[in-house]
Amino acid sequence: MKKLFPSYAVIITFALLMAGCGGNTAFRKSVAEEQSLVFGYIDMSDAPGSLFGATMKRVKPVTDKPYYGFGIDGGMFFRTEVPPGSYKFTSFSNFKSFGNTQYMFNLPSQGRSEMDPIIDKTGIYYVGSYKYKKVKTGFFEQGKFDIEKINKPTERELLTQLLERAKHPTWQAAIKKRINELK
């Protein structure tokens, strides 16, 4: 068996840990058990690598374990098991297999952005579709980026994609109902 380099081991361990943090990638329990679904999309085509993770923090009520990882499907990020509260997206990460590199994109740590959801009751929360844009900086300046809102994919298109993951009838019904509302 070929021996793995330590860096691969770290990446694999991180990937496995993140996979466990994204809530359920298939919605097998009922809506009542899994609580709210939060999802969105970010086009990272201008960034190195492809979308690998997203992290959101619960800012209210304050908790000992405030960070929520997300499942990834292409550019879509999603997760269930989000209890009521105020949340803030803190970072996105990309992974580039060629070069074996992970990139971390930290969002501003203060203030509420358009993306940050307030979950007041169990439901389906779309936080928007965005595109990563690199901001040009000077030769020796720190790298910067911006994210801008885009119209595509729409909430409806993303929900249609998520419907495949809805294994429990209550999730199928809830997602279909929302899709019909968006027609």
């Binding site: 930290n106 720190q142 980026f145």
Partner: peptide
């Protein structure tokens, strides 16, 4: 917003340190 690169080659680290010390 800030981009943090997770992995860097030693040469890049040296160049960055030089750059930062110059800007300082």
């Amino acid at each position: 917003m800030t981009r943090l690169i997770g992995k860097s080659a030693p040469m890049h680290v040296g160049a960055m340190l030089l750059a930062l010390s110059l800007t300082g």
